[in-house]
Design a protein around this nucleic acid. Structure first.
Lengths: 92, 92
DNA sequence: CCGACGCATCACCGGAAACTGATATCACCA
DNA sequence: TGGTGATATCAGTTTCCGGTGATGCGTCGG
């Protein structure tokens, strides 16, 4: 989930949220070089955030909604714990 | 929300989820140097993730649950959009 | 009022990560 | 089957960011 920190990767995820797309789409829309986009996709792929689907000579990528929801659940858990312990102050 | 990418900051947020604490607590628990922790806290403070509360000669920090929930909401929104557009594939 | 303590800020350094260019691979088409 | 286009990978460079040391400020205790 620390992968969404990079603006380029955040933009990729945002584009893929609108529907599966191949690498050339992302390259066009983002204005980045092809190897650059491909590297970001590899990082996201290894983290399980996106899934690659070879389609003839193209490669379609689509988001893994489960991974995003898992990250979201972790944040809501943190928020809930923070609220519950809001006034349990540790003394020095 | 790209701030939680750093492991040190994630650890700080995790500790603060257990209840408000002053800088010295975080320094002790994390084993990091004091300026280092203070720098991370400044970043988190400017992003609105944590709130500082001067208390005599100490400074207590506590999480801003709203900010965490907002980030979580953004992720769930991405996941929902991904599911909705899962089969809306763009052609090359 | 002076020493000690908690905390913040600044300048600097080193390492990691993003971008680039070149290249390899595979699928399609003529 | 040779050429082209789409994609992945790799080595090199540059940029950015986290860690460290030194320092300043405010607060408490003697």
């Amino acid at each position: 989930m620390r992968l969404l920190a990079d603006p380029a990767r955040a933009a990729i995820v945002d584009l893929l949220a609108a529907g599966p797309a191949c690498t050339c789409h992302l390259v066009d829309d983002l204005g980045l070089t092809q190897p650059n986009v491909s590297n970001h996709l590899r990082a996201l792929r290894h983290a399980g955030v996106v899934k690659a689907e070879p389609y003839g000579r193209y490669t379609y990528y689509h988001l893994n909604a489960d991974a995003l929801e898992a990250a979201a659940a972790h944040l809501t858990d943190l928020a809930a714990r923070a609220r519950a312990a809001a006034d349990r102050r540790r003394e020095c």
